[in-house]
Design a protein around this nucleic acid. Structure first.
Lengths: 344, 344
DNA sequence: TTGAAAGCGCTAACAG
DNA sequence: CTGTTAGCGCTTTCAA
């Protein structure tokens, strides 16, 4: 293992000088710098990030904590985070967890071990958020999709409410009055917010909410299939269904097909997320596009801002990412293969 | 920040003793141990992993390098890796990259910076694999889905050949003789192996391969759509198509629908991977199930084995993960909703 | 069973 | 411009 000493010896200088050129310090004679650089290259030397970290108190790595669930959504966000942070010379350590307890444990070992300079937390479960949030203390953090916020951290949420509102109103405009809703997992922030948008749209349209038209899934296709089937096998079935995410909406489409119901004529279906399958399934799924990759990037940006100690403006404390309603076939709109856009 | 000194002072012992109880050393009087433990708890102390790492030469973190592509496949593997490694007290730092150059750079800073004890490399591009592989040296490594192998590292591949062979034979059994193939990205190991299986199956069935029935996509739906369209708009179009992965197969299904071709009567379609959509799309997609989560876990296991210095048996040097052909509707088999199984 | 001290690889004053 | 030196927080001999 080649160390700074080896380089110093080879270049005929002190380790301090080597350190200077490594860190781009200007107080080094051009010739000396060159010698050192050459030695570094010849020895194929890279400074030990560990040793640097111990000394500088920064590790140039940030932790990302997210639920251990198979999800396009999380995967893409992490990709966005990673892409941005990597560009800015940060490493990303990911850490998933199944339950709240586990989550807290992981979190502590990461944070207390001074292994990370900051964290990005994805905790869709409202409860988890509180648990961890109370322990963030002074660590730079970005919280994703929770309603929790502290003076120390910034929270990033997508405009669930607005997206759900628009989607529901659109269904109303298609003439529907019996609009079903498939909830996501219990206590999930996104699901609740989408439900809120749905309810308000109904209210605004003068439609009384009907608990019989509501059911709950777990954000996966399977559960959407079952939930939709239950909804549609009722006597008084909905003529439209708004699912809290695309995976469940796709399950609902499949359920409708199994029941030989035509989409959108017998039942219109709308989702949320705009996963790539949405555009390819038949009928194509009307949904709300969430800029997942961008969310990851934003999370990275906000965290770096905090790390740099840049003053957070009041309005930055909690940022809302706009979403985009996209009409396809499953709501009853005519097919339009030109405006579908490209995947990220 | 509370350090080992604080604990020592509080417990009235030396830092050496504190270190001993932290590391579970037995040479500590019960009473002393208790005092120290109490001090640790009261101060809510966690040893600095950084400092420990500098001293012990291990970081308890492993690096995972993979292509920066939106993919169910990679995401799930990473999830599997993370799940396993976390259970064994290892952190996972992920690092994606768009091009080979970038990849190599990231890799070096991670490895040379002594930030990781080992790496798991996913390099579907055959070229990339060589570049990096030549630099692995003595670092414990697990290579996924490449044909490269060194005495130092273990390679984990899925049985692409067998899966593709079975899928193609199945199409032949359905009576097809004009079976098209949609390649994945150029130089991709998985794609090439699946092609090999396809070719051999054809040969065995006494069917001459026809270059006009081959085309190339990029493993994403979009490209599968275009590739399939090109294939099917030909004079002498295939009556069956085998796509190198599910995403492209799904694009192909969509293309067939646009051309008003019935699946499977006008054209049968088979994919590879068994992503969750495969089971829900209509018609459901016949494909080859790849145990992604398990692959991640295996990768973790193999790496840990190396880390522990456990003797690798010869046959472990390159491990082949079996895959599973699953018949659904798109190949012409009757629907069977009971054997679909559950998603992971 | 415990403590003193050296040192992991590096940075950052402080001198010169 | 460059070298010396004192740590960063921890583990690990070596003595006691």
């Amino acid at each position: 293992m080649t160390t700074i000493k080896d380089v110093a010896k080879k270049a005929g200088v002190s380790i301090a000088t080597v350190s200077r050129v490594i860190n781009g310090n200007t107080n080094v004679r051009a010739q000396t710098r060159e010698n050192v650089t050459k030695a570094i290259e010849e020895l194929n030397y890279t400074p030990s990030a560990i040793a640097q970290g111990l000394q500088k108190k920064v590790t140039k790595t940030i932790g990302v904590i997210f639920p251990d669930a198979s999800s396009y959504y999380f995967a893409e966000i992490i990709r966005g985070i990673n892409r941005y942070l990597q560009k800015h010379a940060y490493q990303v350590v990911v850490s998933s967890s199944h339950d709240a307890e586990d989550e807290a444990k992981t979190f502590f070992s990461l944070v207390n071990g001074r292994q990370v300079d900051g964290v990005i937390l994805m905790m869709p479960s409202i409860h988890n958020a509180e648990v961890i949030n109370s322990h963030i203390r002074d660590l730079p953090a970005v919280l994703l999709n929770t309603e929790i916020n502290t003076p120390e951290s910034v929270t990033l949420v997508i405009d669930n409410y607005q997206g759900a509102y628009e989607a529901t109103i659109h269904l109303v405009e298609h003439g529907h009055t019996k609009i079903g809703f498939i909830h996501g997992s219990r206590n999930n922030y996104d699901s609740e917010e989408r439900y809120r948008g749905y309810l308000n749209a109904l209210a605004e349209a003068g439609i009384a909410p009907d608990k019989d038209l509501e059911t709950r899934g777990k954000f996966i296709e399977n559960s959407g299939f079952e939930a939709a089937r239950a909804l549609m096998e009722q006597e008084n079935r909905p003529t439209a269904i708004f699912a809290a995410n695309d995976a469940m909406a796709i399950g609902a489409i499949e359920a409708a097909k199994r029941l030989s119901l035509d989409i959108p004529n017998d039942v219109a279906i709308v989702g949320f997320d705009d996963i790539s399958t949405a555009r390819f399934i038949s009928p194509s799924l009307t949904t709300v596009n969430v800029p997942v990759l961008k969310i990851g990037q934003l999370a990275g940006e906000y965290l770096l801002k905090q790390l740099r100690g840049e003053a957070k403006e009041e309005r930055d404390q909690i940022a809302v990412v706009p979403v985009n309603f996209v009409r396809r076939e499953s709501c009853g709109c005519p097919p339009n293969h030109h405006t579908d856009g490209q995947p990220n």
